[in-house]
Each structure stands twice: as structure tokens, then as C-alpha cells.
Deep mutational scan, measured.
Amino acid sequence: TEVDLHLGDITIKLKDVSEEIVKRAKELFKNGWSAEFVKKWIEEAVK
């Protein structure tokens, strides 16, 4: 499945990412993480 994760003005296309990771990524962004950091976190999380 593909998900578009909207973080501010940046959209990250996610492939084969669990709902849990998407939820967590949104929380991290809301908590002040930059979109770049969230993207890196996701990449690490799906390895």
C-alpha cells in the first residue's frame, strides 16, 4: 500500500509502511520534529 504523509508543506510518499509507523511519524512531526527528521526516522523504522 502507498500512503502520502503530509508534513507541513512537505509530502512524503510511503510504500509498505504500517499504520503504526504513519501514526508515530505524525506524532513526531506534531511534537516539533522537522519533516526531514521524520523522513529519516521512517526510513530507519522500515529497515
Rank of each mutant, 00 (worst) to 15 (best):
T1L: 15
T1H: 15
T1Y: 13
T1I: 13
E2L: 12
E2R: 09
E2N: 13
V3T: 11
V3Q: 12
V3Y: 09
D4V: 14
D4Y: 07
D4T: 14
D4C: 12
L5C: 05
L5R: 03
L5S: 02
H6I: 15
H6M: 12
H6F: 07
L7R: 02
L7P: 02
G8C: 06
G8H: 05
G8P: 03
D9L: 08
D9N: 14
I10T: 12
I10M: 13
I10E: 11
T11E: 06
T11V: 15
I12M: 06
I12W: 00
I12H: 03
K13D: 07
L14P: 01
L14I: 11
L14H: 02
L14R: 02
K15G: 09
K15S: 11
D16S: 07
D16N: 13
V17Q: 02
V17R: 02
S18E: 07
S18P: 14
S18F: 08
S18Q: 08
S18A: 13
E19D: 15
E19K: 07
E19Y: 08
E19V: 11
E19I: 09
E19S: 09
E20G: 09
I21T: 05
I21Q: 03
I21N: 01
V22C: 05
V22M: 09
V22R: 07
V22S: 04
K23Y: 07
R24H: 14
A25S: 02
K26D: 05
K26G: 07
K26V: 14
K26A: 11
E27G: 03
L28C: 04
L28V: 01
F29S: 03
F29I: 09
K30F: 07
K30W: 04
K30Q: 14
N31Q: 14
N31T: 06
N31S: 12
W33V: 10
W33H: 15
W33I: 08
S34G: 10
S34Q: 05
E36P: 03
E36C: 09
E36W: 02
E36M: 04
F37T: 14
F37P: 01
K39V: 14
K39Q: 15
K39P: 00
K39W: 09
K39E: 13
K40H: 13
K40M: 13
W41L: 02
I42C: 02
I42A: 03
I42L: 12
E43G: 04
E44N: 11
K47C: 09
K47F: 04
K47Y: 04
K47Q: 12
